[in-house]
Nucleic acid binder design. Structure first.
Lengths: 329, 329
DNA sequence: CTCGGTATTTACATCGTTGGAACAACGATG
DNA sequence: CATCGTTGTTCCAACGATGTAAATACCGAG
């Protein structure tokens, strides 16, 4: 692999002049510039990023800490973050926590200024004390704990209220919720939106219709749905805190020969592509994931120099996409 | 951020002694070692990986080049590769190509020995000439072109034959295939397996039943299925070259009120988790993704020093998971 | 008490790059 | 022709770590 030194020798100039050409410094004589460029071409020179970053005091990487890539929401988001990071010449390092406290702590511990310039975090279990970060960071989604770190995400209360309001407008009376979780901030907010929508419609809040989910996988949704269908008085609608839960719930309903949406209307959250092709297709809250990704990256970029500004709270848009799981074809 | 120098000053020893302690060098006097360790603890020292790698001539990263993270198969695989890479103290850099030739060339060009130690590639369109790699690499899946690069993956011909053989054993006579593609090596092999299974069952090969798909997304599967259902004599079974195509196909069938599996049996390929929860659930070829991921990483690791051994061809196991899309509950 | 050998530590150079200061070349000015 | 400011180039140090080799400390044997 060619280094600056090789190029310099070939072009008959000093290393620094080559460096100047590479970095677009103006004051280089045309003929020297031409010779250097020819030599760059001839050697196929590519800067050693490690050395450059060592010298510049940055790493060229940002970390994306998320529960699991096999969860479609995070996979899609990761793809968008990678694309957004490219615009700022950042490479993205993905760390999976599997949603556990220990996994998240481990990931955080491995984050140092020597490894990444900044981090995008999607924590689920972290406590206040854990947020002793050595690099600028942005949190995705809500966090239960109150820490002075910027946040990017949608208004979960409003989104949940919209979703449940939709079910109410369809005339559903016994509306269940799947996805309550003691630790997760987003879960608490979505539950709050759920209750607000019920209250607004003068529907009674029934604790028995709120089912917790430890993980937000399809299997959890199916299990939760089964327990709801076992109730003496089962629901006629269900709001799931993410699409995977909803997919699992619809599967469980199908196995019990409960018709969706006729007997049971289902709304999800995240708008995974999967939900557009399920049978029936799934009504879902659609956050603007590209907006989340680019807002997070831009925020980190703009703050790269000035670490301790007042934390930002960026609200990205969302919409409700009505499909067959609530309104039949 | 503390450096070796800071630690050395605090412990009252030279920088190199600290380095020796950090790297587990044996000949350090116990009391010095203790003082250094205390100083390490006190300063919270973390090695600067950039500097270390610059000195060692490695980067600590491997690249994973794949079409798109929003495709579940690749998202799942990426998660497994990250986990496997951790075992060898490697970080994973993900590059998306979106399945285009230009995207793949771009990704390959950005790979240099200064950026990554090795690469795992999942190319779809690359030509022979493109494989001028400057780092050790492993290819996932088949490649149409013949290049001296190690490969990890399942036996696509055998897998396809198994899938179609299953449809044959159910008594299906008009078996279609969705996913033919002029460029992709895997597509050619799966088609070969399809034809072999037909031949073995004395079923005629009908070109009209083979539908190409440019991308392997759900939408392509739906479009292909629609064209098959428009035939004067539509198929009674379809083998889709991946699960997303199959999901799209099942959706299209449902929209035309074609019953799966009664009127149409469907088999997919990849065994995405999504396929277990669709209605009906999808029969699919299940490659052992964890085996693929760890085989690829291990191969790169074992060859890190010796670049040009004879390329390996690792065949990982697969199985056929029979579900409701071929055999009703 | 010196010598020889081993154990332990240190100084120094180095990886490839860039910032800063010093320096050289140049035409223009007085 | 000396001086000056501008432009262009080079030299040197530094980023933080590690390999090499030289230097020092330590030990028992002679």
């Amino acid at each position: 692999m060619a280094t600056l030194k090789d190029v310099a020798r070939l072009a008959g100039v000093s290393v620094k002049t080559v460096s100047n050409v590479v970095n677009g410094y103006s004051f280089v004589k045309p003929d020297n510039r031409a010779r250097v460029e020819a030599a760059l071409e001839a050697t196929g020179y590519r800067p050693n990023l490690g050395a450059r970053n060592l010298r510049r005091g940055r790493t060229g990487f940002i970390a994306l800490v998320l529960p699991e890539l096999s969860i479609p929401y995070f996979a899609e988001l990761a793809g968008l973050v990678i694309a957004a990071a490219q615009e700022h010449e950042w490479n993205v390092l993905i760390e999976q926590t599997f949603g556990t406290l220990s996994g998240e702590r481990l990931a955080l511990a491995s984050l140092g200024p020597h490894l990444v310039d900044a981090a995008i975090l999607s924590p689920e279990a972290l406590q206040v004390d854990d947020f002793q970060l050595s690099v600028p960071a942005v949190l995705l989604g809500e966090h239960a704990v109150d820490v002075p770190i910027s946040r990017v995400g949608i208004d979960n209360v409003a989104a949940a209220k919209t979703a449940v309001g939709h079910l109410v407008s369809l005339g559903r009376k016994r509306i269940a919720a799947i996805g309550a979780h003691p630790q997760r901030g987003t879960a608490a907010l979505r539950l709050e939106g759920y209750r607000a929508a019920l209250a607004e419609a003068d529907l009674e809040f029934a604790p028995s219709l709120v089912v917790p989910a430890l993980n937000y996988h399809r299997a959890d949704g199916a299990a939760a749905m089964k327990s709801l269908l076992d109730l003496r008085n089962p629901p006629d609608a269900v709001f799931c805190f993410n699409d995977l839960l909803a997919i699992g719930a619809m599967r469980a309903a199908a196995e019990r020969l409960v018709r969706v949406p006729h007997d049971l209307a289902v709304v999800g959250f995240d708008n995974n592509e999967e939900s557009l092709y399920s049978s029936p297709s799934l009504t879902s809250i659609a956050p603007d994931k590209a907006a989340i990704a680019s807002a997070a990256v831009d925020l980190l970029h703009s703050r790269a120099g000035s670490p301790d500004l007042v934390p930002a709270d960026v609200q990205t848009p969302f919409s409700l996409l009505v499909r067959e799981s609530t309104v039949a074809r």
